[in-house]
């Protein structure tokens, strides 16, 4: 199969779906008054731009903050968990148990803690959502370092920190990046959910809050406009992390190298 087909085919599928959407909403326009066509959605993005663009910016900012905190926190906790078996045995089951708690129940708690500061609440929730996949994957990578390679380092009398720095961390990198990819998909979802539940109109609100606002104003075209921007945001966010992963792995890791 030609390589160009790898992007031509999905592009064609997208055009067909878009065309079908346009056709359906044009032909039955009088019956589908709550289902805007693609043109109306784009128009709503334009007319509401004064509200939508700052909201998108704020959502992006909160997603980045939560994601960054989860990356650092998750990485550090994974190093701690991997450092010694007793530490892992005593902590890891609780990390897993905590993950099973639905994160939304934390929202009222965060609201109380942060005196209803929306940004802090939403960032904390995003942190909670993105944190676990990073911890779980990175810990797995750090503890599954090839036994032979560890023995090799022992024959060189590597110090513990050298083994961590030169062996365990690079070995765990693909695992960490897998966690990061999952977190990158979750972070924007977390922000929008958090914003729907805890967002306020003070200052500029995020996309999640606007979703509620436009619903109460009964404007399906604007709701769809928010959905479109959320989708674009999520796509850009995840693509950036996928790109980073490729950049770090493509020269050596099987997952990122083409068969020769």
């Amino acid at each position: 199969m030609k390589r160009s087909l790898h992007w031509l085919l999905p592009l064609a599928t997208g055009m067909i779906i878009l065309g079908a959407w346009w056709l359906v909403t044009t032909v039955w326009a009088d019956r589908l008054i709550y289902f805007p066509g693609p043109g109306q959605v784009v128009k709503a993005v334009w007319t509401e731009r004064a509200e939508l663009l700052p909201a998108t910016g704020k959502t992006l900012w909160m997603a980045l903050a939560g994601f960054a905190a989860a990356t650092v926190g998750g990485g550090v906790l994974a190093l701690l968990l991997a450092s010694a078996r007793p530490v892992r045995l005593s902590l890891y089951p609780w990390v897993l148990a905590l993950q099973m708690v639905p994160v939304v129940i934390m929202i009222p708690i965060f609201q109380i803690w942060y005196s209803y500061n929306a940004a802090k609440t939403i960032i904390s929730m995003t942190f909670m959502i993105s944190f676990f996949p990073i911890v779980a994957n990175t810990t797995m990578g750090l503890v599954s370092t090839d036994r032979r390679l560890r023995e090799l380092f022992r024959t060189w009398h590597a110090r513990h920190w050298q083994e961590v720095l030169y062996l365990r961390i690079p070995y765990a990198l693909p695992y960490f990046l897998t966690g990061l990819k999952i977190a990158a998909v979750l972070a924007p979802v977390g922000v929008i959910t958090g914003d729907m539940l805890a967002g306020t109109s003070e200052g500029t609100s995020g996309l999640g809050f606007l979703l509620y606002k436009y619903r109460s104003e009964f404007r399906p075209d604007a709701v769809f406009a928010v959905a479109l921007l959320s989708a674009v945001l999520g796509f850009v966010f995840a693509s950036a992390v996928y790109g980073l992963s490729w950049l770090l792995l493509h020269r050596w890791h099987d997952s990122a190298t083409r068969m020769e």
Binding site: D146, L152, F153, Y166, P170
Partner: peptide, 23 residues
């Protein structure tokens, strides 16, 4: 010297060879 070459896949040949001295 192990039965497998036990090279570090993320390092190029030179950096693999240098590793014992780096440590």
């Amino acid at each position: 010297i192990f039965q497998d070459a036990t090279l570090l896949p993320w390092l190029n040949v030179r950096h693999n060879v240098e590793m014992p001295l780096r440590l």
